[in-house]
Amino acid sequence: MTTRYNFAFFDEGSKREIRRATLKAIAIPGYQVPFASREMPIARGWGTGGLQLTLSLVGKEDVIKIIDQGSDESVNAVNIKKLVTKTTGIQETHNTTEATIIQSRHRIPEIPLKEGQILVLQVPIPEPLRYVEPSEYITKRLHADKEYSGAWLMLFEQIMKYGNMSTGADHPVSVNERYVMAPSPIPRFDNGKMNSSNALILLGAGREKKIYAIPPYTKVVSLAFEDYPFEVESFEDKRCRICGGKAVFMDELIDEKTGEKYYQCNDSSYCLEKLKSELSA
């Protein structure tokens, strides 16, 4: 492979700085470590945090999978994948099990992750208290004091207004009984997969210049009240129209011809793998 860039796009100094921040993030689960987010050839807010983590991690032996809201083939995923593979020459895959690094926007794959794999999540707003406190100076002090009334109040107000916790995604979690953390805008359905995960989970926010992490086998609890327990999106009685899968996170779609509502697996590679195994059986 001939390329005018250094391996994995970055200069070694940039990688070193990101790597130091990542090691501290792993050592303090759920704590947002500031880092010098680099200018990237994609716009901030399009996955630059995740991309910087991936580029600092990736080596010649890696196999990478990049997904965007469950899809391996959406524009964001394809662009990031092209940048990584063109500057490293590594293999890419759609298969969750084959991948050593999985970079994802807003989903955790349906196929359970294995020990040794690294899940990199792209994060737009890493601060779980940002909705109640706009000042970074203050939120850092609130984290220092373990003062999370703001996060609880946000959920309480949702219950008062709508009768339940209405966080569609990014439902705050408590990590290792210390830090309240934004799990990135994954659906509530995926929050449980963070608890005691087999794989290391790294979260990168490029625009906000933060890296944080959940090591494997770490306690992650979604915030909830005794009388209003945490609930995930329910897909009971629903089946995927393509593969017949159930008990997975699904997209609700409308058939344009008949106007009927139907459901489809959100994780496209899970859906295709299931279909393939059923066809070959």
């Binding site: 090691l23 991690l57 992490a213 090591p215």
Partner: peptide, 9 residues
């Protein structure tokens, strides 16, 4: 680095 990440996690 990856080995250190593995050990740290």
């Amino acid at each position: 680095y990856r080995k250190v990440v593995d050990c740290m996690s």
